[in-house]
Amino acid sequence: MPRLQWRGRCTGQACPDLFFHAATRLGVDVRRCVVIDDSVTGITAAMAAGAQAICFTGASHVEPGHATRLKEAGASCVVSTAPDLAVLLQPEAA
């Protein structure tokens, strides 16, 4: 597995180092990881790491238009309920 490394400048929460660390600890390539987040900075960090990003908009603090901002940050899809997220994360049938 190639070792990916972030060489950018980290600012606040938008640092992909957490995702590199988690993938390394799990022994997987970060590009095979899925990040579920409800913040633009989290989605941005996931994308910078090379992970797939899913935005979750089911929290009570999410305001109108937030899903659009998350998609613009690079999220591959928007999920607004936990049951929908569970369905999305099911492995595909072989």
Rank of each mutant, 00 (worst) to 15 (best):
F19A: 07
P83F: 00
R3G: 09
A22N: 07
R9L: 13
E92G: 02
T11K: 09
C77I: 06
A48D: 08
P64Q: 12
C55W: 02
L70A: 04
E92N: 02
L88S: 00
A49W: 03
V78K: 05
V87G: 01
S39H: 03
R3D: 14
L26K: 09
R25N: 10
K71W: 04
A53Y: 01
F56K: 09
T41Q: 14
S39E: 02
A86L: 11
L26Y: 10
A48M: 06
L26T: 04
A14Y: 00
R31N: 07
K71N: 11
T44L: 04
C77F: 02
C10W: 08
V79N: 01
H66R: 14
T81H: 13
G8L: 04
A14E: 03
A59D: 15
I54V: 15
A75G: 04
V34F: 12
H21Q: 13
R9W: 11
C77H: 04
P2E: 12
L88Q: 09
L89I: 08
R31F: 11
H21S: 11
I54G: 07
G50N: 03
V78W: 09
V35N: 03
S39P: 06
T68F: 02
A51D: 01
L26V: 02
L26F: 12
C77P: 00
I36N: 07
T11V: 13
G27C: 08
C77G: 01
F20I: 01
M1C: 04
A22F: 06
C15F: 06
L85R: 08
G58F: 06
A67V: 13
I54K: 05
A73E: 10
T44E: 07
F20M: 09
A75K: 07
Q13P: 03
A73T: 09
M1W: 02
V79W: 03
A73M: 11
A51Q: 00
E92V: 04
V28C: 14
G74F: 04
E72I: 05
G8M: 03
I36H: 05
C77V: 13
P16M: 01
Q90L: 01
L70F: 09
A48Y: 00
V40D: 07
I54L: 15
C33H: 11
T41G: 11
P91N: 10
P91I: 10
V79F: 00
A73N: 10
L26H: 13
S76E: 09
F19S: 01
R9V: 15
H66W: 13
F19P: 05
W6A: 11
L88K: 07
T57I: 15
H66L: 04
L26N: 12
L85G: 05
D17I: 05
G8Y: 08
T81W: 05
R25C: 05
V62S: 05
F20P: 01
D17C: 11
G12H: 07
A48N: 02
G27Y: 09
L70C: 08
A14W: 00
A75R: 05
R32A: 15
P2W: 09
R31H: 09
R3I: 15
C15P: 06
V35I: 14
C33M: 15
C10N: 11
T68M: 07
R31C: 11
D29R: 10
D37E: 14
G27V: 06
A94M: 13
D37L: 02
L26I: 01
T41A: 14
P16F: 00
M1P: 02
S76R: 08
Q5Y: 03
D38H: 09
T57N: 10
A53T: 00
D37H: 04
D84H: 08
L88G: 01
